[in-house]
Protein backbone atom coordinates (compact mmCIF):
# COMPACT_ATOMS: atom_id res chain seq x y z
CA UNK A 1 0.00 0.00 0.00
CA UNK A 2 1.46 3.35 -0.93
CA UNK A 3 1.64 5.67 2.04
CA UNK A 4 0.82 9.32 1.90
CA UNK A 5 3.92 11.05 3.22
CA UNK A 6 3.15 14.59 2.04
CA UNK A 7 4.02 17.22 4.60
CA UNK A 8 1.08 19.02 6.22
CA UNK A 9 2.11 22.67 6.63
CA UNK A 10 0.30 24.91 9.13
CA UNK A 11 -2.80 26.20 7.40
CA UNK A 12 -3.11 29.78 6.29
CA UNK A 13 -6.89 29.86 6.16
CA UNK A 14 -9.30 28.66 8.82
CA UNK A 15 -11.03 25.40 7.83
CA UNK A 16 -12.48 24.09 11.08
CA UNK A 17 -11.13 20.63 10.27
CA UNK A 18 -8.63 18.37 12.00
CA UNK A 19 -5.96 16.07 10.60
CA UNK A 20 -5.75 13.82 13.64
CA UNK A 21 -8.78 11.58 14.28
CA UNK A 22 -11.16 13.23 16.72
CA UNK A 23 -12.46 9.84 17.94
CA UNK A 24 -8.97 8.71 18.94
CA UNK A 25 -8.38 11.90 20.88
CA UNK A 26 -11.72 11.45 22.67
CA UNK A 27 -10.66 7.93 23.69
CA UNK A 28 -7.36 9.21 25.07
CA UNK A 29 -9.20 11.88 27.07
CA UNK A 30 -11.67 9.27 28.35
CA UNK A 31 -8.79 7.25 29.82
CA UNK A 32 -8.48 9.86 32.55
CA UNK A 33 -10.50 8.69 35.57
CA UNK A 34 -10.91 12.25 36.89
CA UNK A 35 -12.71 13.44 33.79
CA UNK A 36 -16.47 12.96 33.60
CA UNK A 37 -17.45 14.02 30.11
CA UNK A 38 -15.67 15.94 27.39
CA UNK A 39 -18.00 17.69 24.95
CA UNK A 40 -17.45 17.06 21.26
CA UNK A 41 -16.63 20.74 20.76
CA UNK A 42 -14.00 20.67 23.50
CA UNK A 43 -12.52 17.50 21.97
CA UNK A 44 -12.24 19.33 18.65
CA UNK A 45 -10.28 22.16 20.32
CA UNK A 46 -8.01 19.65 22.09
CA UNK A 47 -7.37 17.78 18.81
CA UNK A 48 -6.35 20.93 16.97
CA UNK A 49 -4.25 22.07 19.92
CA UNK A 50 -2.44 18.71 19.73
CA UNK A 51 -1.68 19.26 16.04
CA UNK A 52 -0.27 22.69 16.83
CA UNK A 53 1.68 21.16 19.69
CA UNK A 54 3.32 18.56 17.41
CA UNK A 55 4.39 21.35 15.08
CA UNK A 56 5.65 23.45 17.97
CA UNK A 57 7.69 20.53 19.32
CA UNK A 58 9.07 19.72 15.85
CA UNK A 59 10.03 23.37 15.26
CA UNK A 60 11.76 23.74 18.62
CA UNK A 61 13.60 20.44 18.12
CA UNK A 62 14.81 21.63 14.73
CA UNK A 63 16.11 24.81 16.36
CA UNK A 64 18.18 22.57 18.65
CA UNK A 65 19.43 20.49 15.68
CA UNK A 66 20.73 23.71 14.06
CA UNK A 67 22.84 24.65 17.08
CA UNK A 68 26.51 23.75 16.98
CA UNK A 69 27.25 21.89 13.78
CA UNK A 70 23.92 22.23 11.94
CA UNK A 71 22.21 18.97 11.05
CA UNK A 72 19.36 18.26 8.67
CA UNK A 73 18.02 15.36 10.66
CA UNK A 74 16.16 15.59 13.91
CA UNK A 75 17.33 13.18 16.55
CA UNK A 76 15.96 12.11 19.90
CA UNK A 77 18.53 14.30 21.69
CA UNK A 78 17.14 17.39 19.94
CA UNK A 79 13.73 16.69 21.43
CA UNK A 80 15.30 16.15 24.84
CA UNK A 81 17.19 19.44 24.47
CA UNK A 82 14.00 21.29 23.50
CA UNK A 83 12.24 19.84 26.54
CA UNK A 84 14.93 21.05 28.92
CA UNK A 85 15.03 24.52 27.31
CA UNK A 86 11.34 25.40 27.49
CA UNK A 87 9.26 25.74 30.63
CA UNK A 88 6.08 24.82 28.79
CA UNK A 89 7.62 21.47 27.76
CA UNK A 90 8.60 20.58 31.31
CA UNK A 91 5.64 18.17 31.55
CA UNK A 92 7.51 15.92 29.07
CA UNK A 93 10.56 15.40 31.29
CA UNK A 94 9.51 11.84 32.12
CA UNK A 95 8.49 10.99 28.55
CA UNK A 96 11.68 12.29 26.92
CA UNK A 97 14.48 11.92 29.45
CA UNK A 98 17.93 13.09 28.39
Amino acid sequence: MPYNTTAIPPRKEVTGQTQLPLSRVKKIVAQDQDINICSNNAAFVITLATEMFIQYLAGESFTMAKLGKPRRNIQYKDLAAAVSHHDNLEFLEDVIPK
Binding site: T5, A7, Q19, L20, R24, A58, R72
Partner: peptide, 19 residues
Protein backbone atom coordinates in the same frame (compact mmCIF):
# COMPACT_ATOMS: atom_id res chain seq x y z
CA UNK B 1 -2.15 8.52 17.43
CA UNK B 2 -1.43 7.63 13.79
CA UNK B 3 2.30 7.93 13.30
CA UNK B 4 2.05 8.92 9.64
CA UNK B 5 -0.02 12.01 10.45
CA UNK B 6 2.36 13.00 13.24
CA UNK B 7 5.25 12.69 10.81
CA UNK B 8 3.43 14.73 8.14
CA UNK B 9 2.47 17.45 10.62
CA UNK B 10 6.05 17.66 11.89
CA UNK B 11 7.47 17.83 8.36
CA UNK B 12 5.04 20.66 7.63
CA UNK B 13 7.09 23.06 9.76
CA UNK B 14 10.53 21.82 8.68
CA UNK B 15 12.55 22.76 5.61
CA UNK B 16 12.28 20.22 2.77
CA UNK B 17 14.68 17.25 3.03
CA UNK B 18 14.82 17.39 6.79
CA UNK B 19 14.81 13.86 8.20
Amino acid sequence: LPKSIIMRLAKGVLPPNTQ
